[in-house]
């Protein structure tokens, strides 16, 4: 059974590119355009991995991450934060809130795939 990945980002073009990339690699891909939608879809669909943008409308990535980690049913869900703000404080804040990995935009598609595979294997 293929792994299920949710892409949560408000930038349509970024969603399109990642979605295309992951589908080509054989993952099942879900999409959310803001924080609240992302949280709802994770609870409903229980994806194996969430690619979570930090700067999103309605609810930012950190809050989503925190909410997910507060839910014991979702403890198996891996979280990979994606952000355009690449400062160290942001990285540590994300990891501190329970994210499993962190990538700074713009990223290399190869690295993103490698990170995704790594998180799904463990």
């Amino acid at each position: 059974m293929s792994k299920k990945i949710l892409i949560a980002d408000d930038e349509q073009n970024i969603v399109i590119s990642i979605e295309f990339l992951l589908r080509r690699e054989g993952f099942e891909v879900l999409v959310a355009g803001d924080g609240e939608e992302a949280l709802a879809r994770v609870r409903a669909e229980k994806p194996d991995l969430v690619l979570l943008d930090v700067m999103m409308p309605k609810m930012n990535g950190f809050d989503v991450c925190q909410a997910l980690r507060a839910d014991p049913e979702l403890s198996a869900t891996r979280i990979l934060m994606l952000t355009a703000k690449g400062r160290d404080t942001e990285v540590s804040k994300g990891l501190g809130l329970g994210a499993d990995g962190y990538m700074t935009k713009p990223f290399s598609t190869k690295e993103l795939l490698a990170e995704v595979r790594k998180l799904l294997e463990t």
Binding site: S17, L21, A84, K85, G86, K105, P106, F107, K110
Partner: peptide
């Protein structure tokens, strides 16, 4: 931080699409 963010966002798409096309 905002400027950086605003610059990185289109760059992310451009890089991703370019790599998809190249690969």
């Amino acid at each position: 931080s905002s400027v950086t963010h605003e610059l990185r966002t289109p760059l992310t798409s451009i890089r991703a699409f370019s790599e998809l096309l190249r690969d």
